[in-house]
Design a protein around this nucleic acid. Sequence first.
DNA 1: ACAGGACCTCGACA
DNA 2: ATGTCGAGGTCCT
Length: 401
Amino acid sequence: MTEWLLSGGRFLAVSGAGSGSDARVRPVFRWSKIQGALTGVLAGRVWRLSQTDTHILYQVIGQVDNQPLPSRPGRKKQKRKSNTPIEPNNGVVEKKIKSEEKADTKEQPKMMTQAMTSNTKVTKIKTEDGEEITLKTEDGLAEKNIEVSILRDYFQLDVKLTDLYEQWCKDDPHFKQVSPNFTGIRMLRQDPVENLFSFICSSNNHISRISGMVERLCEAYSARLCEVCGVTYYAFPTVSALAGRGVEERLRKLGFGYRARYISETAQYIMEQGGESWLYNLKTLPYEEAKAELIKLSGVGAKVADCVCLMSMDKTGAIPVDTHVWQIVNRDYKHKLGTTKTLTDKTYKEIGDFFRQLWGPYAGWAHSVLFAADLRKFQELKTSTEKKVDTKKSVKKKKSR
DNA sequence: ACAGGACCTCGACA
DNA sequence: ATGTCGAGGTCCT
């Protein structure tokens, strides 16, 4: 049995953890679990995702309205009509993608734009009943090819995870001890705009509230939406929309607190730099430089900048040190590092450098494995102390230390 | 360079 | 029924 965890913008595929199985999918930010499948918006489409041990299963069940978004990679003109509810599991063939293919020519992770345009190749997909079909880029099949490309890009399936795990186990005894129950954990390649503003919301905050805030942000400022099976899905707002007048005031009324100003100021700053394309272009900079640019943004410190670098700028060595990672360090790696009472800038950098040296160029990916393990412990602890509480809503409570 | 405190909000907990 | 605490940080002294 395989399960998925979604955490703070990290999409975690966890296989065969075995124990008790009280662990469950945790929908965070913009993916939620509906009828057993993760449902959310990606690249202008509404998806349902699930997985087996070997395949990712997906359905595209809707599309958000197409509005001009010239600067954002991965957006293409959509022809399918929106607002058309499609019944899941009803006449729609679930498609599978092999989780890890070896035949790819390039080692480098592909960017969305490249994946979208390199559709000249033939793609093989296994259907649910095991039949293998071949898709070419022509007529109606082109769209399916694009869908596959989007998911391959999102899950970064060209990254050979097993090789990386092997290396990390070899170099780090503690990783070797912890990782077997947490295989298959990949970093998602997320959209920089969405990622950035979501993590600005995360400061001094807890996950359940962040999710609500991001949702309200979309409802208030996205013009692109569609409804599927009674649920409304939004594209993420444009930076331009968030840079408008009165944004801070409105967001404060929506419960964003002091982060309202961060969002407004950051959006305005990005527009001054030339808009979303400026943000996307940070991908082309080396890690340190991209991070330095991000830290200039209001409400963006070292941690949020590293989240953006790792999850949406292809900086695979970025290590976001949040309270969880700080705990992990102090518990499991303390002997390797100098100790400070609080997380200072200097210590922050030392931790990142230490792990990059230990784990290599994909250190950020390795760190998320330990993060996932820690999260699991946290959840098990929580659920075991919470047995009597039985609410209908999926309340995510945080247990304080 | 480091420590300390404020900051919005809202469930847990006492 | 109220009061305090702290949450996947950032910013300012």
